[in-house]
Design a protein around this nucleic acid. Structure first.
Lengths: 190, 190, 190, 190
DNA sequence: CTCTAATCGAGACGGTACGTCGCGTCTTACG
DNA sequence: CGTAAGACGCGACGTACCGTCTCGATTAGAG
C-alpha cells in the first residue's frame, strides 16, 4: 500500500503524480536494469520534482511494488486453476491469454530489469497461496514447497521467453508447451 | 580474465590477495544481496587495502565473475549429459553429487544475493553451448531456445531449493525429482 | 508594511491572525536563533495554516520587521533625548524605564536569536535619524557616523546585557552606568 | 580545531585543500552574508569537490571558526594591554596597526556577513580572558562582565566602522577616538 | 643474499545519487 | 464560493560509495 495514504482518499494531484511515476518506471524498466534506474531519472521521466518522488514512495522499490503487487495477485489468481482444474490445457490458454492482454506491462516486469525481483516476489506469493490452499498433507513424491517453487519459476520462465522472443508463436502453442513441460509433470509428481 | 595479468604469471602476493578477496566475496554473499555489498566491505573482510581491490578487479562484478565463471563452465560440462546420455537418472545423480561436493560455493552463488546474476549467466552459457552442440535442425514441438532456457532455469531452481532448504534430502532423491520434473519432460518435448 | 493590506483596513480575522503570528514569533525567538525558526514552526505555534502565513507576510523576515519596526521607532524616539537633553542622566533613566516596561518584548528581540538583525536595523535607523536631525556641519573630533554607530551599538549592548543577566540591578544603576560609559563620552566627543 | 586531525599531522593534500577552502570562504564573505553562502558555492570557488568540503569541516560554521579562531586569539592578545597598560593611547595605536596589517582578513570577518558570529565569539572569548586575568574582586561601579561585554563590542564596532568606511582616516586618529570613546571611560568605570 | 621493482596499506580526492528539509507557489476539497 | 490544508517544484543539506590518485613501506624473486 503506497505511502501518504489518507484513508484511501487521494487528492487528484496525487493520483496524477503517482500515475506519472508508475508510467515512468515502466518506461525505464524496458530499457535498463532496475538497479541502475535512479530516482532522479524516474522523476525526470515523470516530469515531476525529485523530492516529490519521496512524498509518494520511500524508495524506488516501493514504486515497483505498488506497480506490481496488484498485478501479481491477479496473475496468481489466474494461475491457480492450472493445478486444480481438470482441463489443464484450457487453463494454460486462459493464463497466457490474460498475460497477452497486458503484454506491455508484463513484458516490462518479466523481461526488463526488474525480472529477478518480480520472480522472487511471485514465487513467495505462490508459496503462501499454495500453503493456504494446502491440499491433503502431501503423500506425494516430492515436497510441496519444491513443487511450488519449481512450477512458479518455470511458468514465469516460459512466459518471459514468450514475451521476449516468441511473439510470433500463437497463444495456443505456447500454452500447450507450458502444459506439457510444466503443468502435467508437476501434477504427476503431486 | 582478471586484471593486472602479467602473462598469466602471478606474484605470490597477488595470488594471496585474490584468494582473500574471493573468500570475502563468498562470505558476504551469504549474508546480503550482491548489489548491497560494497567494495569497501569486501576489502575490509579480506583484510586488504581498499585501493588494492581495484588493482585486481575493475569492479565487484568482475570479482564475482572471476569467482563464478570457471565453476559455471564446469557445471555446464556436468549438466550437458543430462540431455544426451541414455541414463538420465544417473546423470542427474552425478550432477547433484558434483554440486554437493562444492556445496558451500554453490550455496553462496545460488541462494545468496548473487543468484539472479548467476542464473542469467548460466542460462546464457547454456544457450551458447546448446546452439554449439546443436542437434539436428529441430523438428521438435518447441523451439530449442525455449527448451534450453526452461531447462536451465528449472534445474537451477531445483538445485537452489535443495541447497537452501532440502539439505535433509538425499542426493538420490533430489536427483530423481529433477529427472522426473525437468529432464524427461524436456527430452520428450525435443 | 505587511502584505494583503487593504487600504490599511484590516479584517478582524486578519488582525487576530497577525497577532497570533507575532506572538508565535516572539515565543520562538526566545528559544532559538531567528535563522533556525521555520515558517512551519511559526504557523504551528500560532495555530494557523501554513499557507496562511504567506497571506500576511512574504517571509519570516517581514513578520519580524512588522513586529519590530514600530517598537524601534518608539525606542529611537526615547533615545534621541540622550544626546540633546541637558539632563542625560534623567534621559537614561527614562529610556531604561521604557525598555523595562516592555521587558518581555525587548528581551526576545535583543537577547534572542534575532539580536543581530535588530541591532543592524536599529543602527541603520539611528543613522538616518541622526543625519536628519543633523547638528551643525560637524566640527567635532570624530565623524558623526562613527559616533552614532558606536553609541547605538553600545547602548544596545548595555541594555541587552541588563535584560539578559542584570535583572537584579535597579533601573537607576544601569542608567547611571549607561550615562557614564556611553552618553557622556560620546557627547564629549561631539 | 579542524576535523580529521591526525595528531596534527596533515597530508600535503589536506593542507592545500583547507587553504583553498579558507580562501574561498574569505572571498565569498566579502560579497554576501555568511548565512547565504552555500557549501556548494564554497566548494566551487575553492575548486574542490562538494563532498570534500565535509571531509574537512562538518559545516560552513566550522570552516569559519577554523579561519577565525587563531586570529581571534591573536587579536585578543593585542587588545588585552588596552586595559592594563599605562599608555592606553599607544596600545590603541598598536591594536589598530595590527588590524591594519591584516586589513583584508578583518574586513571580511567584521564587515561581511559573518560579523554577528565573529562578534559573539569575540565577546565570549573576551569574557573568558577577562575572568581569567580577573583583577581584584571588583570594587568598581559596574560589573566586570558588563564592562567586558561593552568594551569588546564597542571596540569591534569602531574597528568595523573604520574598515568599512573610514579608510581615509589615519591609524593615529581612529586610535585616538577609540581611546577617548571606549578605553578611558571603561577604565574610569573599573 | 642482495637489490630492485612490484605490490601493498592507507586514505584524500572528484564525482554522483541518495534521502531529508525548508521555502514559497498553487491546486483542491470542503465548509 | 472562499479558505484551510497541503501537494508541488526547487534547491541545499549532509552521507555513502565509486573509482582514481598519490604516498611510503614491505616484500618477492632475479641475479
Amino acid at each position: 500500500m503506497p505511502d501518504g495514504d489518507n484513508n484511501g482518499v487521494l487528492d487528484a494531484r496525487q493520483v496524477r503524480t503517482r500515475a506519472k511515476l508508475q508510467g515512468a518506471m515502466l518506461a525505464l524498466l524496458a530499457e535498463e536494469p532496475f538497479e541502475r534506474i535512479t530516482v532522479r531519472a524516474i522523476a525526470e521521466a515523470a516530469q515531476v520534482g525529485y523530492a516529490t518522488f519521496f512524498r509518494h514512495y520511500p524508495d524506488k522499490g516501493a514504486l515497483l511494488h505498488d506497480l506490481a503487487d496488484d498485478e501479481i495477485t491477479e496473475l496468481l489468481g489466474r494461475a491457480a486453476p492450472l493445478f486444480t482444474a481438470d482441463d489443464t490445457r484450457g487453463s494454460c490458454v486462459a493464463l497466457i491469454a490474460y498475460v497477452a492482454e497486458r503484454r506491455a506491462l508484463w513484458r516490462a516486469l518479466l523481461t526488463g530489469g526488474a525480472a529477478p525481483i518480480l520472480r522472487e516476489r511471485l514465487v513467495d506469493q505462490s508459496r503462501v497461496l499454495a500453503l493456504k490452499l494446502g491440499g491433503p498433507p502431501s503423500e506425494s513424491r516430492s515436497p510441496l514447497e519444491l513443487r511450488v517453487t519449481y512450477a512458479t519459476s518455470a511458468v514465469l520462465e516460459i512466459i518471459a521467453w514468450w514475451l521476449r522472443e516468441g511473439e510470433a508463436m500463437p497463444i495456443e502453442e505456447i500454452a500447450a508447451i507450458l502444459d506439457r513441460l510444466v503443468i502435467r509433470p508437476t501434477l504427476a509428481e503431486g
